[in-house]
Simulated assay, not measured.
Amino acid sequence: MRPTVHTLSAFVMLLSALLLASCASTLGPVNDSLQKTQYAWAGAIRWGDFEGAWGVVDPAYRAANPLTDLEMERYQQVQISSYRELASTADLQGGYAGRDIEIGVINRHTLAERTVRYREEWRYDAIDKQWWLTSGMPDLWQGQ
C-alpha cells in the first residue's frame, strides 16, 4: 500500500507541530525569564529605581563601565513619565534580544519634559539562567 499525498501531508504537519512544541517547551522558560527580567527592568526605570536597574546590567559591562556617584546623582534629578516599547527582536536560541524604547523624562528642577529613545540589548547567560542588559543604563541627557 502506497501512502497518499494527503497521508504524507498530514504526517509532515504532525511532525512539524511536534517539533514546534518541543522547541516551545525548551525555549518557554527562557522566554518567560526574558519577559520577567524586562518587566522588572522597565519597572525599575519607570519608578526611578536606578540602583535596582543597575543590578540588571551585565556584570561584565558594570565592571568595565562603573557608574560614579555623580552619574547616579544625575539619575536622581529626573522623573520618568513614560516607558514605551516601540519594537523588539529576539533570538532565544542564540540568547539575544533587543528592544527599542521611548522614555519620557522630566527634569525635576525645570519640570521640562522630553522624550529619549534607547536601544536595549539583552543576552542570556545559560549557566545562571539569567538575562542581562548589555547596553548599559539609558542616556537620559542625549542631545543636551
Rank of each mutant, 00 (worst) to 15 (best):
M1Q: 09
P3G: 05
A10W: 05
F11A: 06
L14F: 03
L14T: 02
S22G: 12
A24L: 06
S25Q: 06
T26N: 07
P29M: 07
V30W: 03
N31F: 10
Q35I: 03
A40P: 05
R46C: 00
G48S: 05
D49W: 04
E51C: 01
V57I: 15
D58N: 13
R62W: 14
N65W: 11
T68L: 09
D69K: 15
D69S: 15
E71T: 04
M72P: 11
E73H: 07
I80D: 08
I80N: 02
S81A: 14
Y83M: 08
Y83F: 15
Y83N: 09
E85A: 09
L86C: 03
A87H: 10
Q93M: 03
Q93T: 04
Q93R: 10
G95E: 11
A97K: 01
G98T: 03
D100R: 07
I101G: 05
E102H: 08
I103Q: 09
I103W: 10
R108L: 07
L111D: 14
L111Y: 15
A112I: 10
E113M: 13
R117D: 09
Y118C: 02
Y118P: 03
R119L: 06
R119W: 06
E120I: 07
W122M: 06
W122G: 02
K129S: 12
M137I: 02
L140N: 02
